[in-house]
């Protein structure tokens, strides 16, 4: 049993699949995110894969300050991801709304809506920082028991 647990934890460390979600940001973080896939940073060597469906994902990477238009989609997509899952806030926007703070069209920051596990600051953060953030998320993922449902509901209220 312990061996299996160890194996699973090892597998989670080595195969994080990301789903990328732009909640109305300026694209800056999103391009840097794409740049991570490209030859210079090539995150696939660490087993990181960008997937197209939230049902396949382990890590939710959120960019943008969560606008009114994207909030519902954000919640749906979070619910669609199977446990265990980790949320990474990429850039300043999901952390603080950055320059958009105070706008009536913004619902964020992200931690009002979802439990955020890792913050990656920067406007936009460099690819190195993004990878570092994902590495932190992976460490959480590897040791994580499925999250208590009540906590999530508490945050949503």
């Amino acid at each position: 049993m312990r061996l299996i647990k160890k194996l699973v934890s090892m597998a989670r460390r080595r195969s994080p699949w990301l789903f990328h979600l732009n909640t109305g940001g300026c694209n800056g973080c999103d391009i840097e995110f794409s740049a991570c896939l490209a030859p210079r940073y090539d995150v696939e060597q660490a087993g990181i894969l960008l997937v197209g469906s939230p049902r396949h994902a382990d890590i939710l990477c959120v960019t943008g300050p969560v606008t009114r238009g994207t909030r519902a989609a954000l919640e749906t997509i979070y619910a669609q991801m199977p446990e265990p899952k980790v949320v990474v806030a990429l850039g300043n926007c999901p952390a603080t709304c950055d320059v958009f703070a105070g706008s009536p069209a913004i619902e964020g920051p992200l931690d009002r809506i979802l439990p955020v596990d890792v913050y990656v600051p920067g406007c936009p953060p460099r690819p190195h920082d993004l990878i570092k953030g994902v590495a932190q998320a992976v460490a959480i993922l590897a040791d994580q028991q499925p999250r208590d449902r009540r906590i999530i509901e508490g945050v949503n209220q």
Binding site: G24, G25, P65, T67, R68, G69, T70, A73, V99, F100, G102, S103, P104, A105, I106
Partner: peptide, 18 residues
């Protein structure tokens, strides 16, 4: 509508350098 952040609204509440 998803990307609407109200930049024009915000610009009317920031000084020129901001």
């Amino acid at each position: 509508k998803y990307n609407f952040r109200g930049v024009e609204w915000l610009a009317e509440r920031r000084n020129y350098h901001q």
